[in-house]
Simulated scan of single mutants.
Amino acid sequence: MNVPQINFFEALKIALPDYQNLAQSVAEVLEISTNEAYKKIRATSSLSLPQLIKLSDYFGVPFSYQPRQLPVVSFNYLSINREKPDMLDYLKDLLENLKLIQQRKDKHILITTDDIPIFHFFKYPELTCFKLFFWADNSSLKFDTSAISEEIIHVSQELNRIYLEIPSTEIWAKDTIHGTIEQVRYAFEAGHISDKTLAGKIVEQIRYCLTDMNMYASAAKKTIDPAHSFNWYNCDVLGSIAYLIEFKENMVCYNRFNTFNYLRTDDQFYCAQTRDWMQGLIKKSVSFSGQGEKHRNKFLYNAFSACDHLIEEMGRA
């Protein structure tokens, strides 16, 4: 039995929308009959290498072969030119991925992070502009919101809207909020932000993000729709920033690296290990959702105090 070929078609089936027939799609791409396509899917007829490449390219599904079952995991990633990063392309790629997740019937996002998940601050234009500026490492430039196009703001806010409609669980590190606060402090002290009013507005929008989080957590949902569930946890120590997308049939994992890049894999063994690790973290975490009001209020009080302290510092400068 040609197990790799069968597994490849299983991956193709999962990647297709529910309304799309696998055999018909394969037949159209390979320009063969539907009957022959079924033979390929059942592995009673072998795929040629050109056919394999054609299907993999067309559907965006990698073919994985592991000689002697070596423990190999394949990742793909969006390559960003760090010398001159194109943030619009980066955001559009995120939006395309998030829309594909939203379209699936059964989905859930599980996040571990030591920074505010990017989808939350995309709601606020000045904060979005600042984070993109800081990520792009524009250390020799002044921060100016006019450098960010209206299209970037539109795509960012669309990302926020879609994320709110996807059920999710977030595990934040103890110092998650302080990373962004320290970025603003650094930019102000280094002279990248010379406008005190603008700097204060960015910090205020961090507060708005936290207020949103409090609302989501207390209601255990991100919108008025109960299906858009939300669970928030705090864990003292996290090992990495990871996004695990759980579907009914499979999982996909995204690992952040180099600030804003990410590695993506749909290797199910790797994803299962990541899920088990995340579930272990939840057991060691404090819940901020629903009845976790006491712990949530303490966390938010400290975060709001840090924001207020920074605003006072900048005012005295």
Results as ranks from 00 to 15, higher is better:
3 V>C: 02
7 N>K: 14
9 F>I: 05
12 L>G: 04
13 K>C: 09
15 A>D: 09
19 Y>G: 07
21 N>Y: 03
23 A>W: 00
24 Q>N: 14
26 V>E: 00
26 V>K: 00
27 A>Q: 06
45 S>C: 08
46 S>W: 04
46 S>A: 13
46 S>L: 11
51 Q>S: 11
55 L>S: 02
56 S>G: 09
57 D>Y: 08
61 V>F: 06
63 F>A: 08
65 Y>N: 00
69 Q>E: 09
71 P>G: 00
72 V>Y: 01
76 N>C: 12
80 I>K: 03
84 K>T: 10
85 P>M: 00
87 M>A: 08
89 D>P: 00
90 Y>L: 14
92 K>I: 05
93 D>Q: 13
93 D>A: 15
94 L>C: 15
95 L>P: 04
96 E>D: 13
96 E>G: 08
98 L>K: 14
99 K>H: 07
105 K>A: 13
109 I>A: 06
110 L>N: 12
113 T>V: 07
113 T>H: 05
113 T>E: 07
114 D>G: 14
121 F>E: 13
123 K>Q: 15
124 Y>K: 05
124 Y>H: 10
127 L>T: 04
130 F>I: 00
131 K>D: 07
134 F>P: 01
137 D>M: 13
138 N>F: 11
138 N>Y: 11
140 S>A: 14
144 D>W: 03
148 I>K: 04
148 I>P: 00
149 S>A: 01
155 V>Q: 06
158 E>Q: 14
160 N>H: 15
160 N>W: 11
163 Y>I: 05
164 L>R: 15
164 L>F: 08
167 P>S: 07
170 E>R: 13
172 W>V: 10
173 A>N: 08
174 K>D: 13
174 K>A: 10
176 T>C: 13
177 I>M: 13
182 E>K: 15
183 Q>K: 12
184 V>I: 12
187 A>F: 05
190 A>I: 02
192 H>Y: 04
194 S>I: 13
196 K>C: 02
196 K>G: 00
203 V>G: 09
214 N>H: 09
215 M>F: 11
217 A>I: 00
219 A>V: 04
222 K>A: 13
226 P>R: 05
228 H>N: 15
235 C>Q: 04
236 D>T: 03
236 D>N: 08
237 V>K: 12
237 V>D: 10
239 G>I: 03
240 S>F: 11
242 A>P: 00
242 A>L: 12
247 F>T: 05
249 E>D: 15
252 V>W: 01
256 R>Y: 12
256 R>G: 06
258 N>M: 12
258 N>I: 08
259 T>Y: 12
264 R>N: 09
266 D>F: 03
266 D>M: 04
267 D>Y: 07
272 A>W: 08
274 T>P: 01
276 D>I: 09
276 D>K: 14
276 D>F: 10
279 Q>D: 11
281 L>W: 01
281 L>P: 03
282 I>R: 05
283 K>M: 07
283 K>C: 06
285 S>R: 05
289 S>M: 02
290 G>Q: 03
292 G>D: 04
293 E>F: 07
293 E>P: 02
298 K>S: 09
305 S>K: 15
307 C>S: 14
313 E>F: 12
316 R>S: 15
